[in-house]
Amino acid sequence: MPQIQSHYPLTSLNTFGLQSVAEYFISIEQPQQLLDCIADPKTKSIQWSILGGGSNLILPELVHGLVLKMDLKGRQLTHEDEEYWYITAAAGENWHEFVQWTLEQGWGGLENLSLIPGL
């Protein structure tokens, strides 16, 4: 189970730099940590908010409940056929870097979605 932190500052985790604090906070870096949160009676009984890159997000001064920061990493080609590439990306991957990576691999199609902030 990941470490639950109380009154965790979210100011640096939102692109507007708004002063905000999470009542409870967990950084999810491995898929098993998310499964542990789902199974733990302490965490599954309170409200959850999911935080990615914090772009275009207006946070209140206090976010009640548990904030789960998605810090999962990983991207891979999972399948391809004559028409498409099927690519999986984890919830903590930077979107722009992901798009650039697909282009470096020669897998076109997402280039018009480049420079979108977020994870």
Rank of each mutant, 00 (worst) to 15 (best):
F16R: 11
E82N: 13
H64A: 15
S114Y: 01
E61W: 01
N14S: 11
P117D: 12
S12Q: 08
S55I: 04
K73G: 02
E80N: 11
H64L: 12
V99K: 06
L62Y: 07
C37Q: 07
L10I: 07
I50S: 04
E111Q: 14
E93P: 05
L119Q: 15
T15L: 08
F98Y: 15
E111A: 08
F98L: 15
I46Q: 08
E82F: 07
L77Y: 04
L62W: 06
W107T: 02
I26W: 04
E82A: 15
L77I: 15
T43H: 01
G17M: 09
L62D: 08
G17F: 07
S20H: 01
V63F: 02
E61C: 03
F25D: 04
I26G: 05
G54E: 05
D36M: 02
H64P: 06
Q30W: 06
T15A: 14
L77K: 13
Q3S: 14
I28Q: 02
G52Y: 07
L119I: 13
P117F: 12
W85P: 02
L72C: 05
I116Y: 06
V21N: 04
W85S: 06
P117A: 13
A89K: 08
G53Q: 10
Q33N: 01
I38Q: 12
L119D: 14
E23V: 02
D40C: 03
G65W: 00
T78M: 12
K42G: 08
S27T: 09
W107R: 11
D40F: 00
L66P: 01
E80I: 06
F16I: 05
S12Y: 02
K69F: 08
Q30R: 14
G65R: 05
I28K: 02
N56P: 07
Q3G: 05
E83S: 10
E61R: 13
K44P: 00
